[in-house]
Design a protein around this nucleic acid. Structure first.
Lengths: 144, 144
DNA sequence: TATCTAGTTATAATCATTACAAATTTGGAA
DNA sequence: TTCCAAATTTGTAATGATTATAACTAGATA
């Protein structure tokens, strides 16, 4: 899990400025475990920075992803991209009913990396390991 | 890997018709290993069925996904959804430069399923296990 | 201060996907 | 066979996430 220092340090090391907007986005990414979308980040931060532009959110997320300090997750049926400050390989669980995405606790899959790069010759940059299904509460709701 | 019979049988069992459009889409999905998008499928089949509508492609893909006989892959940086008739859990490798998606050969990850459903209580319906990076030829191209 | 560059903002454009209603096709009943 | 209702397809328009663009702002430097 990346810390706020990880993100800010990598911005500085790349010669980029730590603007209030970028700092707020980094803070939110590090503090949440909800794998937010650009729109969710925008809505959260707008209260403190009313002038914030959605474009800035997208730009910052792209910058952080290019630096490799956040991960870009595919969508879970809602056609929007989710972001994750946890860049260690781990499994996500997406509920197809309520569209929440959670991490699977204590399941490390780092060993997959080695297998995959050895077999394929690819230079690996990240992973999206997403299982989808019905979370316990949506299972109940469906069978009521 | 689903066969053409798997797809057509599940359509019939669900009381749905096997129209020429649906048959052509199923055939293409089963015969290709390129994880096509709706647009790619549309372009491929239009030669034989000039009246084909892109809406039909989307509808058919949604139907097959709902039946659970194809998988819906998130996008690999190109903001489009890819589809896969191989519904056994396996790892995908997406190149962030040329946007091709390949399967990682001989790497079965079925054992992950059991761990995950045991730990989480989720009812699992599918998986998208995508590693992304640079394929060998795009690595060369970048360093030229 | 004047200037230069990186960053932000607002707006418009793009593009994948979905919604909708009309047209067509299908399979079954008379 | 003919007709009918339902399923399916089609074309068009709407939606909504993301990206492009250009004007504006702020911070650093000379």
């Amino acid at each position: 899990m990346s810390t706020l220092e990880d993100l800010t340090k990598s911005l500085k090391q790349a010669g980029l400025r730590l603007t209030p907007q970028r700092l707020a986005i980094c803070k939110l990414l590090v503090e949440t475990d909800s794998h937010p979308t650009a729109a969710m980040i925008y809505e959260s931060i707008r209260a403190q920075y009313p002038s914030l532009s959605l474009t800035t959110v997208y730009n910052t997320l792209e910058t952080l992803a290019d630096l490799g300090v956040i991960n870009v997750l595919g969508h879970s049926g809602d056609n929007t991209v989710h972001y994750d400050a946890n860049i260690t390989p781990h499994v996500h669980l997406a509920c197809i009913a309520c569209h929440k995405i959670i991490d699977v606790p204590s399941l490390h899959v780092a060993f997959l990396n080695d297998d995959i790069s050895a077999v394929s010759g690819y230079k690996l940059l990240g992973a999206r390991l997403i299982y989808y299904g019905l979370c316990p509460s949506c299972q109940k709701r469906n069978y009521q």
